[in-house]
Amino acid sequence: MLEIRNLHKSLGGKHVLRGVNLVVEKGEALVVIGGSGCGKSVMLKHILGLMKPDQGSIHIDGRDIAKLTERELYGVRQQFGMLFQAAALFDSMTVADNVSFALDEHSKFSTAEKKEIVAKKLGIVGLPGVEKMFPADLSGGMKKRVALARAIAADPDFLLYDEPTTGLDPIMSDVINELIVKLKKTLKVTSIVVTHDMASARKIADRIAMLHEGTIRIHATPDEVYASDDPIVKRFINGQASEEQMKEVWGYTATQAGEGAKG
């Protein structure tokens, strides 16, 4: 089980996370939604220990990782696989070297065994035979799938996805969503997916948590979230900006714009 308790973080003078509390049960797929810049990725990086909280704790199977040193965190991170927003493949290495990175670093598999595992993981993400290619030769969707193969290479217990469908066309987004569902079922991993793509959230989630102004606004099943009366949750699901948000960007509200047109 993974539990975040009262997580606070300020970045560049902005109080991004203001007391996040969240529990992720073993084997479930939690989708974290929220507007751009609301701190979803920051929260994800705290779970992996890539950032240290200003206040609060993150417990993984009862152990507070916020108190661990960088060296101790390397042991914890071997339980995790992470898909970064821009894939973050090592561009000086081939696809095979990228996928086998964790195996090369932390396992005692022979070269032949590693080669077999790489081929198997690339097969799972639907990219057989690309081992010798370099990241620069791949399309955006292929890069994400290779990054996914790298994330699952060492059979992690937790898979973290940072905006897995951002920048992809709707078909490729669906392919990635299907992959996330498939991996959850076949590998029995606990998945945490950060996204603002509601179609992805609906497809992937066992539960959805919405991050708004630094705290969790709602944490419920997809059906409960879609049935919510909370105006902020409703607006996010339906993709409708509030009057204040319109005024912030345009200097006038939608109502005022309508009145202006009539006048």
Binding site: Y74, R77, Q78, Q85, A86, F101, A102
Partner: peptide, 16 residues
């Protein structure tokens, strides 16, 4: 590598 999150990816893969 830092700005494209490759350094974070190294850390995420439990590598210093």
């Amino acid at each position: 590598m830092s700005v494209t999150e490759q350094v974070d990816a190294l850390r995420a893969l439990a590598t210093n």
